[in-house]
Amino acid sequence: MNQNKNGTKDNKKYILMSICSVLVFLFIWELVTDVLGIFKSTMLPSPVKVFGTFIDKFTNTKPDGATIQVHTLASLKVALSGYLIGVGIGVPLGIAMAWFRKVDCFVTPLFDLLRPVPGIAWLPVLIVFFGIGLLSKAMVIFLSAFIACVINSYSGIKNTRMVHLWVGQTFGATRSQLLFKVAIPTALPMIFTGLKVALGASWNALIAAELLASTKGLGFMINQARGIYRPDIILVGMIAVGITGAILGYLIELLQKLVMKRGWRQ
């Protein structure tokens, strides 16, 4: 009992420390910018100013021609279209590569050729093909998401315990039953890991793509702000990107809980 009480007391202490740590961080940031002026606001704006700009950006379309909501939606549209296609093709392909020997032998070498090239490197090729519209950016994101999905679904299926397959076989399961009732459920945690990794990769690629070729979107906003030395807008953009990414990540987490709530051990 004694230990238990100590435990919760300790936890409270640590939570308090965490809160203090964030506050101290913000305080020091404010101190070195606004108060002491060590960093000029063209280098590092104060947290107060960043917060102000953030609020302001909801209504103000200057200097990049749109409010933050518009930019976020534009980014989301590109990112999600690329991401969903990447998942839609990547996950089934990864599963097929791991399950069917012929597909494995034939596709894996080709995939291994593609794998080490980061998605963003294809942007120039895609721009030549499709111009600097949504399509080429969505393709970059598609490639980034696709690779992560294939790798994770592939190793998820490959990790299926042979014993489980044998059990299935002795009960007379057909090959497709084995795939859908044994292998895919085993691979689900890995597949979800793949979805999360793919999300991070696509979000990252999106920003790079928008920095390079875009007329709207959060990456574009950040890039414009750099040109006119407004680091406060850069930071606002980064925060918006971070928050949106975190929300998307949380949604996948939620989806995973929904799908895997029955009988999966964590």
Binding site: Y14, I15, M17, S18, I19, S21, V22, F25, T42, M43, L44, G200, W203, N204, A205, L206, I207, A208, L211, G219, I222, N223, A225, R226, Y229, P231, I234, L235, G237, M238, I239, V241, G242, I243, G245, A246, G249
Partner: peptide, 26 residues
């Protein structure tokens, strides 16, 4: 952990490439 983890978690969701512009300014 108590001191650094929250700061780390604040920065982590920002995609690395989003730092490019800030890096150029700095």
């Amino acid at each position: 952990e108590a001191i650094l983890r929250p700061l780390f978690e604040l920065i982590r969701p920002i995609p690395p490439l989003a730092w490019i512009s800030l890096a150029i300014v700095w």
